[in-house]
Design a protein around this nucleic acid. Structure first.
Length: 784
DNA sequence: GCGCAGCCCATTTTT
DNA sequence: TGGGCTGCGC
């Protein structure tokens, strides 16, 4: 597809069906009784729903009704009697997606979904399968699932035991490596020496092996293992695989572009049975390459599954023409894509705006003014989202919102069960349940502080290893003798007695009550009550929520089983609040008004991403931009700052290349003048550009750069972006000539005085007297 | 064993 | 700039 014509939303594709096909009422589809759910689907959507046999790839662009298709398809398979609910495998990535799908299918066909036992996340389904056949991969079916934190702590021990410099080679890094290996479906045996050399001069594979052995001893799995053990299980036990071939008549995969190699192999093995695999995804929204997702999986689908049918959903029901035009134009700069063009009947609407601001506080000020004016017009805060590239960008917004009392919520961040206090509480519960859970025991043996230090714990570990017993058992042994003395011994003995008492009590009382009792009697809640830190109150709140969450399960075991894989605590009642989140966590969501701040080179696209992954990294960043814009239903507003504080020091910044890639006909450039004087935004822009140093104001106002800026701002681009030079908003064309030359003495608002050391178009290298060497746009410096 | 000062580093996040 | 970790001193 040529990129030029994709800037404009395409007209509706011709309906290629025959007259009789068109006349055919969908509800008369073979075997489908009472197929109300098929009504209102467009031609492509119903094609995707009705094609139930053989491999099918549904390329579902943003806002094209993907979930609807998925759920209708499920309903349709059930309704036509093609399969029982238990014969359909439907996988998603997140619990949220799984839950939504379950609810929506339920809405379509009622009761039957009760029996959709194989609808869930990759991990929960893999865990379910693994529990059934655990022995075949050397585990017991009661295995525990470790989270990242446990994983790292275990790896630290492994690294230490191997006598490797822990500072040079961290547990975190090895955890990331092992994760990436598991994502690729690599067991320690399959690891190339090149991969192994990524850690401690070739010790990677050996440590990986040791770690896996340790996990087996602990009867535990990490997240990656769930899928990887499944692969081993299926490949080493063809009879087991065959059983699942017979079982699953239909496979349904959501967000296929996010699958990693391991998940792909898993799906391919399972699909060998019926060949009825339907994957839904959008290559343009693949933004998880860094955690192992292979866009290639979706690009290659037709080759992997010969005879696969491809259905493209291109009609967008979410956004206006301009939003889609801007997003399509931007994504057209990517090379590796299957190529789709979204279109809509929703013509008109607002163009995407691009606004240049002075710095982050100004950005926050202008955005908050916009939000207030939106709210003043009677619109909801809930309809507004601010999407940033990195969470640190949230700060200036939060500060501003707090100052104004503007209600907001941060989406994402540490999840409920990843919080310190929740993990600690879980560790207590794990110890209650199992006397061999060393990781849990170690975590809480001195939390709250009982006077048991590293030395004591080391002694316990040594003893446990020597006697091949658990830490808890070793503790029992060592406190009987004089190995451990004094305060530590007393404390350990008391602790063991507590555990014994809790275990005895747990037999008779409800699990929520024993949990409360443990937190109380262990001194854990007291520890936070005594803590003066601002977060303590919140932690105590979270512990209350934990008890509440537990109450929703009948037993402690049921609760713990769900904790690691599916538990997420729903936020309380919906307040009317602005949402603040990263672009990544915005995927799948939509908002009438979307703010996209921080579109500057290095910030977005992220420098790190480009450094580490080159063009592929840049393209993923661009997809992220595409995801960002397509979240908007009515308005998308892009911002960039001329200066940004990075790691404490000020840097001048260059507008993101993505801004120049937006098709100009869908963009409005918003700046100070050219707007009515009563416009608050206009005033703000003017203020932002003049605030900091009043003294330098007259100087700057008379500089050529400023005058040119004044002349151009508010002007809308009639033609291609390259035709206007030196506008503050545009990245300068390469050949533009600056009126500054090497050696000129200049003044900059933030950096002070300096001398030009290089001039590349409008980009100047300046050696500032105080601030050091910086690259700045010439529009932001004045002749001194 | 604990608390504090200095040091180092610094995307994106789900299970 | 600021948060998290470490090592040192008590």
């Amino acid at each position: 597809m040529s990129s030029a014509d994709s800037f404009q939303p395409a007209p509706p594709p011709p309906d290629r069906r025959s007259i009789s096909e068109r006349a055919m009422p969908v509800r008369s589809y073979e075997g489908a009784a009472n197929a109300d759910y098929l009504e209102g689907l467009n031609a492509e959507q119903s094609d995707a729903v009705l094609t139930i046999d053989g491999p099918l790839l549904v390329l579902a662009g943003a806002g094209t009704g993907k979930t609807r298709v998925l759920t209708c398809r499920l309903a349709h398979i059930l309704n036509t009697g093609r399969a029982y609910p238990s014969q359909i495998l439907s996988v998603t990535f997140t619990n949220k997606a799984a839950r939504e799908m379950r609810e929506r299918v339920g809405g379509l066909i009622g009761q039957q979904v009760e029996g959709l036992p194989w609808l869930g996340t990759f991990h929960s389904i893999a865990a379910k399968i693994l529990r059934i056949h655990a022995e075949l991969v050397g585990l017991k079916s009661s295995f525990t699932i470790l989270d990242t934190d446990d994983q790292i702590r275990l790896l630290k021990q492994v690294i230490k035991a191997a006598d490797i410099d822990e500072k040079r080679w961290t547990g975190r890094y090895l955890a990331a490596l092992i994760d990436s290996w598991k994502n690729k479906g690599l067991t320690p045996e399959k690891l190339s020496s090149k991969e192994s050399y990524k850690f401690a001069e070739g010790k990677g594979a050996a440590l990986y092996k040791t770690y896996q052995d340790r996990l087996k001893v602990l009867n535990a799995c990490d997240f990656g293992d769930l899928l990887l053990h499944n692969l081993t299980l299926f490949m080493e036990n063809p009879d087991v695989l065959k059983k699942y071939h017979q079982k699953f008549k239909y496979l349904l995969v959501d967000e296929y572009q996010d699958t990693n190699v391991c998940q792909y192999l898993w799906l391919r093995l399972l699909a060998q049975g019926s060949q009825n695999i339907c994957v839904v995804g959008d290559d343009d929204q693949s933004i998880y390459g860094w955690r192992g997702a292979e866009v290639d999986n979706i690009l290659r689908f037709e080759k992997d599954f010969p005879g696969a049918k491809v259905v493209k959903l291109e009609r967008n029901y979410r956004s206006t023409e301009h939003i889609l035009g801007a997003a399509s134009g931007l994504i057209a700069s990517n090379q590796d894509r299957l190529g789709k063009t979204l279109w809509t009947e929703d013509t008109g609407g607002h163009k995407v705006t691009v606004t240049g601001v002075w710095d982050a506080p100004a950005e926050a000020r202008i955005v908050s003014d916009e939000i207030e004016s939106w709210h003043y017009k009677g619109r909801k805060y809930n309809d507004v989202a601010i999407l940033v590239r990195a969470s640190r960008q949230m700060r200036s917004f939060e500060e501003r919102f707090i100052q104004l009392g503007l209600p907001y919520r941060v989406i994402g961040g540490p999840r409920f069960f990843e919080r310190l206090e929740i993990r600690d509480a879980h560790a207590y519960l794990r110890v209650l349940k199992s006397d061999t859970d060393d990781l849990a025991f170690e975590r809480i043996v001195n939390t709250p502080k009982r006077g048991i230090g590293a030395t004591t714990i080391q002694k316990l570990q040594q003893a446990a290893r020597a006697m091949h017993i658990s830490l808890e058992a070793a503790t029992r042994e060592l406190t009987k003798t004089d190995e451990i003395r004094g305060k530590a011994r007393t404390a350990l003995r008391a602790f063991i007695l507590d555990i014994d008492r809790w275990r005895a009590e747990a037999k008779d009382i409800r699990h929520t009550e024993i949990a409360e009792r443990i937190l109380d009697e262990s001194g854990y809640t007291q520890m936070w009550r005594d803590n003066k830190d601002a977060k303590s109150a919140g932690r105590l709140e979270n512990l209350k929520e934990l008890i509440q969450a537990m109450g929703e399960f009948d037993t402690l075991d049921a609760y713990l089983e769900h904790v690691s894989l599916v538990l997420d605590v729903e936020k309380g009642p919906q307040e009317d609040e602005v949402s603040l989140m990263t672009l990544h966590s915005a995927k799948g969501l939509e908002f009438p008004l979307v703010f996209l701040p921080g579109w500057e080179e290095g910030v977005f696209p992220s420098q790190k991403s480009m450094d580490e992954n080159g063009l592929a990294g840049l393209e993923e960043e661009r997809r992220l931009a595409y995801v960002g814009i397509t979240r908007a239903r009515e308005k998308a507003k892009i911002y960039f700052a001329a200066n940004r504080q990075v790691y404490g020091s000020w840097q001048s910044s260059v507008p993101s290349r993505f801004i120049d890639e937006l098709p100009i006909q869908h963009v409005d450039v918003e700046t100070g003048t050219g707007q009515p004087a009563s416009n608050r935004i206009a005033q703000d822009v003017a203020r932002d550009f003049t605030s900091s140093f009043e003294t330098a104001r007259s100087q700057r106002a008379s500089s050529p750069g400023w005058q040119r800026y004044e002349a151009n701002k508010g002007k809308k681009y009639g033609r291609g972006p390259k035709e206007i030079e030196g506008h503050a908003i545009r990245r300068p064309a390469k050949k533009a000539v600056s009126e500054f030359k090497v050696g000129d003495r200049v003044f900059h608002q933030k950096f002070g005085y300096g001398r030009v050391t290089s001039a590349d178009g409008n980009k100047l290298g300046v050696a500032f007297e105080k601030a050091g060497d910086k690259n700045v746009l010439d529009g932001f410096v004045d002749r001194a």
